[in-house]
Every structure is written in C-alpha cells, then in structure tokens.
C-alpha cells in the first residue's frame, strides 16, 4: 500500500498499464514533457519515451480522431482531453465514430481499446468552461462506456479496467478531488469491475445514489440525517453506461426511497434515466417520489457557484422531504 492522491493514483495506473503492455500510449495537449496541466501524466515521457507519451497539437477533434485510428490499428490509446468542457469539438468523433465503429462493420473492426480520460466537474471556481459535467450527453450514445471514480483507490482500479476493457471508455475524473486527499492505494496491479455499482454505506430508510465527487456530498448529508435518526444507504454508481440498475433496484426495494444527486443540470441529466428505470422496477416498493438533487438548468456560473451546487444542505432537505412525504 502507498498513500496517493487521486492524480497520483491515475499516474500510477498509467505507469502500470504502460509497463505491462507496450501498445498502451498516452497523449493529448501538454501531456508529454510537461506531464499534463494537472500532472496526471508526469514522468511518463521520461519512462516510456516520446513515441508512447506525447503532446498533440491543440485540437480535440484531432486527438480523438487520431485515437480512433490508433485503436482500430490495434494499439491501446489513452487520450486526454484537458477539460471535459473542451470535449465537444470531438463530439462527432466520439458519437459517430468511436461508439459506432464495431456495429457498422458487423464486428470486423473496432476501437474497443480506446480510453478517453477527461477531468470534469465544479467546485474549483472554474466558471462556465472549467466546471461542466457532460456525462449525460454521452450516456445517450450506445456503444460507449462511461466510468467515474470517487477516490484514489477506485481511480486506479477502474482506470486499469477501462484501459483493458474491450469497449471504448470515457473515463471522467472529478478534478476537485485531484489533490483533495490521499488514501491507501495498492502499488500492485488490480482492477475494479465496470458496470458495477459500489455500496459505500449500508442503511435502511433511503438510498442515496451518486458518483464521483458527489459521493462526499452524500456522505455529509447522510451524517446530518443520522442526527435525526434517519439511516441512509449510499451507493456509488461508478459506471454511468452501462449502469448497474440491479444493485440500485435491490437497495430501493429494501429502503423504499431513492434520492439521486449529480452536478450536471437537472433536465435531461442522468438522474432522469435512473428515476424512470427504478420506478419501473420498484413501483410497488416506493414510499415516496424519487428525489433529484442536481445542478440548476443554467450554465455553470462563477460568482454563484455555491448557490448552483447540489450541496449537502440541499441534499439533506431533500432527504427530509422524501422521508416525510
């Protein structure tokens, strides 16, 4: 075991993957010598050479198009998009190419070895263009997998699984946790399963569901609720696509209540999809409507960042409303 923050865990996972398989390559804007603007790729160029860890020109559509080609050839690209907010020039490459490559060729060709890493989320005074959580745009896209880790241990295990997975993975890193804290992370190689939610805390009165940096928010809200004698079960979804409806439904059948929290705007957010599925699977078990605590349906503001965020007090109030429905 070693103490690592989330960035160091990502860096460690990349080193593990690149050491084990010489086909793994990392690239993106400022990723090479500099090690990326957040330093997730620090020292990789030194260790593995310029051929396997390199800077690209400043073009997201180019980065993902290039990565698609590289993956089709049989290499294992781990492409970085510097901020999730800047992924949209690559939207066409991801949605029309990455996600449909295998299907359109009847399984002859695929880009399953591709992993796209990108930091997402707010809480860092980033305003409109350094704060967005764009997972729902991609969740509407069959053929992709979407994975979000909540801490350093999860980050290493999930990233290694993503790199080795046979499908293209969009790996979204909660950047406000990058250097927030350190945790024990095994130095050896390990994987955590994709498509499987993780039970963070057992409880009996309500299920709180989230992912990434919002798990912390759920934990704080659960503590506040505990003072009122409310027992919260907390689930980290971990994979947005495909998502683990089975684990969530089993929990809701036990607690009878569900609250979903995400930073992205409420309308069309992934909570909507979860709510629709869970009311279908658990209709007769639900004691109250499924609650959503999300970002407002506005762009992500700077001065009003605190007001915008689906924080622990908003979550706590929603828990009470659900309990007293």
């Amino acid at each position: 075991m070693a103490k690592m923050n989330l960035l160091q865990a990502i860096n460690n996972a990349l080193i593990t993957a690149m050491t084990e398989n010489e086909k793994v390559m990392t690239f993106g804007e400022d990723v090479g010598h500099f090690g990326g603007v957040f330093r997730a790729t620090s020292h990789l160029q030194e260790k593995f050479g310029k051929g396997r860890c390199f800077n690209t020109p400043l073009t997201e559509q180019g980065i993902i198009g290039f990565a698609n080609g590289l993956a089709a050839q049989g290499s294992v690209p781990v492409a970085e998009i510097q901020f999730g907010d800047y992924i949209f020039p690559a939207f066409d490459q991801i949605v029309n190419e990455t996600a449909k490559w295998r299907y359109r060729s009847g399984g002859q060709f695929d880009v399953g070895s591709l992993t796209i890493r990108t930091p997402y989320g707010g809480g860092i005074a980033g305003g409109l263009y350094h704060s967005q959580s764009p997972e729902a745009f991609f969740a509407h896209c069959p053929g992709l997998k979407i994975v979000v880790p909540r801490d350093p241990y999860q980050a290493k295990g999930l990233l290694l699984a993503s790199i080795r997975d046979k499908d293209p993975v969009l790996f979204m890193e909660p950047k406000r946790l990058y250097r927030a804290s350190v945790a024990d992370v095994p130095e050896e190689d390990y994987e955590l399963p994709l498509g499987k939610a993780d039970l963070v805390q057992q409880g009996s009165d309500i299920t709180l569901l989230g992912w990434g940096a919002q798990i912390e928010v759920l934990q704080k809200a659960a503590e506040m609720a505990l003072n009122d004698g409310v027992s919260c079960e907390i689930i980290d979804l971990r994979s947005i696509l495909p998502w683990d409806a089975h684990t969530v439904a089993a929990s809701v059948m036990k607690t009878g209540r569900l609250l979903i929290n995400h930073e992205a705007p409420q309308t069309g957010g992934f909570a909507s999809e979860i709510a629709a599925t869970i009311q279908d699977k658990c209709f007769l078990y639900l004691e109250a409507p499924i609650a959503r605590v999300c970002g407002l349906d506005t762009p992500y503001p700077l001065a009003h960042e605190k007001e915008y965020m689906p924080d622990e007090t908003k979550t706590y109030e929603a828990i009470k409303r659900t309990l007293h429905y």
Partner: peptide, 21 residues
C-alpha cells in the same frame, strides 16, 4: 460575474464577450 477573471466583454466598445473554448 458568470465567467472566470479576464473574460471581458463590452457591447458599448464593440468587444464581444470572451469565451474560453
């Protein structure tokens, strides 16, 4: 106050508000 510092914009001066992308 919606954007980060240095994202100026002023209609009277014909200076379109800056966007980060």
């Amino acid at each position: 106050g919606r954007q980060m510092p240095i994202h100026y914009g002023d209609k009277a001066l014909n200076f379109m508000t800056i966007s980060s992308p």
